[in-house]
Computed example of a mutant assay.
Amino acid sequence: MSQDLPPLAIVAAEAAPRTRRSNYPEPFFSRMAGREKRPLGDLFGLGNFGVNLTRLSPGGETALLHRHSRQDEFVYILQGEAVLVTDRGEAVLTPGMCAGFPAGGVAHQLLNRSEADVVYLEIGDRTPGDEVSYPEDDIQAVFGEGGKWDFTRKDGTPY
Score class of each variant (00 low, 15 high):
83 V>R: 15
141 A>E: 05
68 H>D: 12
131 E>P: 01
130 D>L: 02
54 T>L: 05
19 T>R: 15
155 D>K: 05
38 R>H: 10
26 E>P: 02
38 R>T: 05
134 Y>V: 02
94 T>H: 08
90 E>L: 00
139 I>E: 13
57 S>D: 09
125 D>S: 09
99 A>P: 00
60 G>Y: 02
144 G>D: 07
83 V>A: 03
5 L>Q: 14
98 C>A: 14
16 A>H: 01
17 P>T: 14
77 I>L: 11
80 G>C: 08
133 S>E: 09
19 T>S: 08
97 M>D: 15
68 H>P: 02
65 L>Q: 03
72 D>G: 10
91 A>C: 00
132 V>L: 13
113 R>V: 09
134 Y>S: 08
30 S>T: 14
34 G>M: 06
5 L>H: 05
113 R>A: 04
31 R>D: 10
135 P>L: 13
10 I>Q: 09
140 Q>R: 15
74 F>H: 05
7 P>E: 15
51 V>R: 04
76 Y>I: 06
154 K>Q: 13
56 L>V: 15
57 S>Y: 08
40 L>V: 08
57 S>M: 14
113 R>Q: 14
94 T>G: 14
152 T>H: 04
119 V>E: 11
98 C>V: 00
69 S>V: 01
106 V>L: 10
7 P>R: 12
29 F>Y: 12
21 R>M: 03
91 A>T: 12
16 A>E: 13
119 V>L: 10
110 L>K: 07
24 Y>R: 11
151 F>E: 09
137 D>A: 07
137 D>W: 00
81 E>Q: 06
77 I>G: 03
80 G>H: 10
46 L>R: 03
125 D>Q: 03
32 M>K: 08
144 G>E: 05
21 R>A: 13
102 P>L: 09
55 R>C: 04
83 V>N: 03
113 R>H: 07
